[in-house]
């Protein structure tokens, strides 16, 4: 457990912080630019990929995960794993409602009551 003594701070070079921030700016620019090009469903994949890279940069460098106790990394990743399990298992329902009888796939009345005039 106690691999690394946190009592003495682990100072990272200033340049590293600016490089990371710079990369984040550039990636933000790219993801906005790409969103104006239409790839259909591919847009989501690209946007999520870039967001994940950005998030990893923040977590690894700004949040020091790369240098800190590896336990913290495991803790943080576990939250993503369980979130993934939650979404996946719920989607076994939401994506498959009409499997046996298509009538069950959609609500009876598509529009909400607030649109009733």
């Amino acid at each position: 457990m106690e691999q690394h003594n946190t009592a003495t701070p682990h100072v990272l070079p200033l340049s590293l912080y600016f490089t990371v921030a710079g990369t984040l700016f550039v990636l933000t620019g790219i993801t906005v630019a790409v969103s104006f090009v239409h790839f259909g469903e591919f847009n989501i994949i690209v946007a999520m990929l870039i967001a994940t890279i950005k998030a990893s940069l923040v977590a690894l460098y700004f949040m020091h995960l790369k240098y800190d106790n590896k336990l913290f990394m495991a803790v943080f990743l576990s939250s993503l794993i369980f979130l993934g399990l939650f979404l996946t298992l719920t989607m076994t329902d939401t994506m498959h409602r009409g499997d046996i009888d298509p009538i069950k796939e959609h609500p009876i009345k598509k529009e909400a009551i607030i649109y009733d005039k």
Binding site: F72, F76, S78
Partner: peptide
Amino acid sequence: KLGMWVFLVTEVLLFG
């Protein structure tokens, strides 16, 4: 720090 990270896990799932 461990406590904080565990707390952040709850935040992730709250937004999750």
